[in-house]
Design a protein around this nucleic acid. Sequence first.
DNA 1: CTGAAAGCGCTAACAA
DNA 2: TTGTTAGCGCTTTCAG
Lengths: 359, 359
Amino acid sequence: MKRIGIYRIAELAKVSIGTVDRALHGRPGIREATRKKVLRIANRLAYSPNPAARALSVGRATLRIGICIPREIRLYYDQMRAGILDESGRASGLGVELVQKPVPSLGVDEKKQMTALLNSGVKGIITTPGNPEIIGPLIDQAEEDNIRVVCTTTDAPHSRRSSIVAVDPELSGRLAAELMAKFVPPASKAAVVTGMLSTEEHRLKTAGFSSGFTSDCAGGEVVAVLEAHESEEESYRKTCELLERKPGLRGIYVSTVNCLPVCRALKKYGLAGIVTLITTDLFPQMVPHLQQGTILASIYQNPYLQGQVAMRILLDHFVNRTPIPASSYIGPALVLRSNVHLFREVQETVSPQPLAQAL
Amino acid sequence: MKRIGIYRIAELAKVSIGTVDRALHGRPGIREATRKKVLRIANRLAYSPNPAARALSVGRATLRIGICIPREIRLYYDQMRAGILDESGRASGLGVELVQKPVPSLGVDEKKQMTALLNSGVKGIITTPGNPEIIGPLIDQAEEDNIRVVCTTTDAPHSRRSSIVAVDPELSGRLAAELMAKFVPPASKAAVVTGMLSTEEHRLKTAGFSSGFTSDCAGGEVVAVLEAHESEEESYRKTCELLERKPGLRGIYVSTVNCLPVCRALKKYGLAGIVTLITTDLFPQMVPHLQQGTILASIYQNPYLQGQVAMRILLDHFVNRTPIPASSYIGPALVLRSNVHLFREVQETVSPQPLAQAL
DNA sequence: CTGAAAGCGCTAACAA
DNA sequence: TTGTTAGCGCTTTCAG
């Protein structure tokens, strides 16, 4: 089967390849009737452009992609960035160029950086919306301007973003609940430590956990939901209060990355390994707690993969004309003592050899 | 930064681009001294060829990749094949062509099909060696002929294969053990149901489980290892015998995909949900057992991802000249009731909407 | 509004 | 043994 090209279309449409190009790409300077005709033929022939030829012809940087995610030194968003970069590196031969407009942390300076991206000639944007209400209109603006926006980890649900790549937060919560229900006896009391319930993601995780726990653990009950606002101090203090107030507590689910203060509090009260602790995500300081059994398991959101998938969606779309899926839900992974060394976040920490690779 | 090309090298070496091409690709008809000179310059300039130009020039099918994995109707190897195909599809613009030489089942006709591949002009092969002793020499032969061989799921450890993509089997076993140890009381008795201990993979899973269980469950003991040879009948019969012989048994780990007979046996003795059952992999018929709690969890090897990674390694190598990693260990995922619907194997079965995608 | 033609970097066939 | 040249399919510029 011989691949058909623009030349063939020109032949059948009795026009020149220049005209075909104009029609195909909505370039100006072509009569509407001619365009229609060409497009009809192209369609009938199921024409799809040869990306190699395009890349070659156009030289460098046909495809500019903007990245607007938090800058961070060693955690979650670095992994995400690594995934994005790795994936874009693969397509470097095809002339992909990245424009980075990082924000210092989630939601901060977001408007400014996104605006900058909108004016930088990108064809697609990968971002983690911190304040959906503020950033939503900008996203809509981008899509209006024919810039495809992919959200990762956090969503801007009421915007017109083309795609969301994330772990379903409700599922995260349910999974934590299912595990916990299996570890604790029936009729146990559990608590949730979260960031802010006003954040969609945290609300959904908490909801998922609560509904999952009451249904999976016969007679079980979620007796407290602590909002710690990502503050170490607040988290520690509130956990201590909780442990004093509810002496019979059997389990805690931490739905943010801020789990170390909870570990400290448990240790202080001699409850490490007694109260079942399930956390979220992974960073090197968590490893000892996993190994000692203070943390029983952690729900891992795989930021590297999220970045990779987000980038891949855009590449497939622009290079191969693949339609953009509205959503890609990443399966949350479970970090346990026996597999903790597999995860990228702790590669240097735990195993000196770079053999393993959690994909 | 202007990308340098073959033309620039020719200029500096004071030869023609034809000669540069010959030098770069080890083609015949060039004096050794000239080749050296050209290569030195190319090296100094950190030259890397433009894949788009190459693909375009050479027209169709520069890169032929052979696939030799079991043919199967709806299970593990189909997922793997899907991963391979999806990934190669992405690079279709670059002229990749697949040569499929499937075997009816693991190890059968392997020699014939691999030999066929060796003579089909492929540059790389993805395969699941069933009998490493038999197939090892063929793999060595391939590598000798400059054909890169990537093994997936099962390894040919003493061959010269370029890469292995798999879940570390020992880790699979350990993970099962860690989970089980958390669910059963101290000093519990557990058993393993496996295929054949002569198969490297099964031996390692069993070993990982045994050592993990005795260390994770205080006073715990693995009281039996059943070899069921992937036979439904044998598996059922032996499990029944086991349950009669060891009435106090608290856990069973099934290290092969053949778990349905074990479920049946447990139900017959009224032990479903009582004896903790941890299985391997996933297929639609397992879903009800997961939902009812007969199966507590399953260790998922992600065949789709394995196929994808294997293919990707070859593509990156041949298209972008990326070095081939000796091994890529996939992190085993855990299937539980709350996330079972995320996995590709059961997408149609459980959720009608194709939203979710376990990656 | 449309056509003709010059490359993009590389391969491969042919000439010298 | 080496040089020259015609494309691969597409974009882009310049003429008509």
